[in-house]
């Protein structure tokens, strides 16, 4: 089984539009959305949800005011400044439970923390595993891992040989979790200084975890000089550039019409198809 993870470092480069187009072009695959923090792929794939699962995050603590003697030990011990004035700020609590174990009066108690949901859905383009992290929740890396696990189980069970994953932006915990063990990280970038800066960091990250990376330059014609600079950087870092896509309003129009950009009438369709062919070759499909 092969997995391709589409990432971008910087947000808004067209990662999800490219992923959705791959989902249309591929065969015998499972689609996953690992951008659990601000998931968008479902908007393009119109999923019919078949199965909903609760996702429990790290527990939080609560103080039982009746038992609390006000000694303040919890406040002193908490490294996250989550306890103050006899109350716990659940947004700062990381669930280490040090206060719970330490409290001499037994006044702290751990409480379950419903941190989100994940879904198994049916779409026109194949089965789709996606998730929604609760607003203001932590541990999205864990939810990403859960989504990928479910996708892999499903692919194994149904004999599908490819997983197409829409990855999260950035280089932190959710991205690391989305990259571990994938066969190819396709970085969708654009020729802007910000995206170029982020590209280098995300390629470093892939190298750090030993993940093979490739690059696709979207909106390449908005700054051809920068585009050449991106290609030079990739050459220096020994990362193949698998495709260039010109700036095309079809991307935005497709997002408005809630369909993959590949379903639009535009020359960009051919560019995406040839990009997909290169990706398949890179994956050995």
């Amino acid at each position: 089984m092969k997995e391709i993870t589409v990432i971008s470092g910087k947000g808004g480069t067209g990662k999800t539009s490219v992923t959705a187009s791959f989902a249309v072009l591929a065969e015998n695959h499972v689609i996953t959305d690992c951008d659990v923090d601000a998931a968008n792929l479902h908007l393009l794939l119109a999923p019919e949800i078949m199965e909903v699962k609760k996702y429990w995050g790290m527990p939080r603590v609560e103080i039982n005011a009746a038992k609390c003697t006000g000694c303040g030990l919890c406040e002193t011990l908490c490294r996250y400044d989550a306890v103050s004035g006899g109350a716990v700020d659940k947004l700062l609590c990381e669930g280490c439970l040090v206060c719970y174990h330490a409290c001499p009066a037994g006044a702290m108690r751990p409480v379950e923390n419903l941190a989100g949901e994940w879904y198994l859905s049916r779409t026109r383009y194949g089965p789709f595993v996606h998730a929604r992290l609760g607003v203001a929740q932590d541990n999205s890396g864990k939810l990403v891992a859960r989504v990928r696990q479910r996708a892999r189980d499903l692919a194994e069970k149904t004999g599908r040989n490819l997983i197409i994953t829409d990855g999260p932006p950035g280089i932190g915990c959710p991205v690391i979790s989305a990259l571990g063990g994938t066969d190819l990280a396709l970085v969708v970038t654009e020729p802007t200084l910000s995206a170029m800066h982020d590209l280098v960091r995300v390629l470093d990250l892939a190298a750090h975890f030993g993940v093979r990376a490739a690059v696709c330059i979207n909106k390449w014609d908005i700054n051809p000089d920068n585009c050449r600079a991106v290609e030079d950087t990739c050459r220096d870092m020994n990362v193949p550039v698998l495709g260039r896509i010109p700036y095309d309003p079809a991307f935005m129009a497709a997002a408005l019409e809630k369909k993959p950009v590949i379903k639009m009438t535009s020359t960009v369709v051919n560019d995406i198809i040839s990009l997909w062919d290169c990706v398949k070759k890179e994956l050995g499909l």
């Binding site: 890396g141 990403v144 891992a145 979790s177 063990g181």
Partner: peptide, 8 residues
């Protein structure tokens, strides 16, 4: 291979 954030 390792899954950072989750050793699975």
């Amino acid at each position: 291979r390792q899954h950072a954030g989750d050793t699975r």
